[in-house]
């Protein structure tokens, strides 16, 4: 036992030493090429604006705050898309399992097509689909104070006021209100429908992994088909489905880094701008890696809690 621990400690030291050596080597090389390696730039003024932010942000704020906006945007989009993808995925998964032939084929078609189209195309597709039919701000559609145009969906919001278009104030855009941009919406839709195809399959595999005898036994004991599904099949199916489901949420978060292709200010996009302004390539890529790792850990921790709270994971 002690030997095992000692061996592991040794391994850890070797790995750490390798990392430090690599870092020192890189620092020396970068120094030789006059490429800056300090993180001090984080506290300089960003100088650029961000069009989607849940916290106040102005061009006079720091790079660090811009990064925070990016992380929050990534976090929110990933969380919303994860929930929606689960709902859609479960619906498609159940449809796939349904005894109704047409419904089941349709669900199969959904899974097979959407899974086989690269995510980037999903995103570009949704972006165009959302932008094309929507009117210009002058002709915003309005319903109960909510405005919709090709710049986004604007809600009245305490502190931000009622959204309105007034050419005298701003000839181009709606002012006021809380906005959901078409970029955010397209990213959420794309991630949702793409990931849902995988989730549907995971659900199906989970349900099919429950031995048939279980359902038959439950019905023999007098449970209705609905009770059988809810009390006997689903808890066991979800237990099987949970680990692959978690991987899907992790994948979704990482996939959200394609946001910049459709103009959404996620972590990758914001850090890309920072890299461009400061030239601090290593630092920004390092920060990105650490933050994505952090987000993954967060997702994992969250899922562990859900797993513990519910009895799905119970042995």
């Amino acid at each position: 036992m002690n030997r095992r621990i000692a061996l592991q400690a040794l391994l850890l030291v070797i790995v750490a030493a390798l990392f430090i050596a690599a870092a020192l080597n890189a620092a020396r090389n970068l120094e030789a090429r006059h490429i800056p390696t300090s993180f001090a730039f984080l506290w300089q003024t960003a100088g650029f604006g961000l069009n989607q932010s849940v916290i106040p942000f102005s061009p006079l704020d720091t790079y660090a705050r811009a990064l925070l906006v990016g992380v929050l945007n990534t976090l929110i989009v990933s969380a919303v898309a994860s929930v929606l993808a689960t709902v859609v995925g479960f619906a498609v998964g159940f449809a796939r399992l349904s005894a109704h032939w047409g419904l089941s084929r349709l669900a199969a078609l959904y899974v097979e097509t959407l899974r086989n189209i690269p995510l980037l195309l999903h995103l570009l597709f949704w972006y165009i689909v959302l932008l094309t039919p929507l009117p210009q701000p002058e002709q915003s559609l309005s319903l109960g104070g909510v405005l919709l145009n090709n710049r986004g969906l604007y809600f009245p919001f305490p502190g931000l006021g009622w959204p309105s278009f007034d050419a005298a104030r701003n000839a181009f855009n709606v002012e006021g209100g809380l906005r959901l941009s078409p970029e955010a919406a397209a990213l959420i839709f794309g991630l949702t429908f793409y990931t849902a195809a995988y989730i549907a399959e995971i659900l199906r595999a989970g349900v099919q992994a429950v031995p048939r005898g279980q359902g038959e036994a439950a019905q023999a004991l007098g449970l209705s088909p609905a009770q059988t599904r809810r009390l006997v099949v689903m808890p066991q199916a979800l237990r099987v489905a949970l680990p692959p489901l978690i991987s899907q949420y992790l994948a979704l978060t990482k996939n959200s880094s394609l946001a910049a292709f459709i103009g959404f200010a996620d972590l990758m996009q914001v850090s890309g701008t920072i890299l461009n302004q400061t030239g601090a390539a290593l630092q920004t890529i390092g920060i990105d890696m650490a933050l994505y790792l952090g987000l993954s850990m967060l997702t994992l921790a969250l899922m562990r809690r859900i797993e513990k709270k519910s009895d799905w994971g119970a042995k």
């Binding site: 970029e183 103009g263 996009q269």
Partner: peptide
């Protein structure tokens, strides 16, 4: 002004 920033020039 609102800037919308894309990876590619074509996008």
């Amino acid at each position: 002004a609102e800037t919308v920033v894309f990876t590619g020039g074509d996008e």
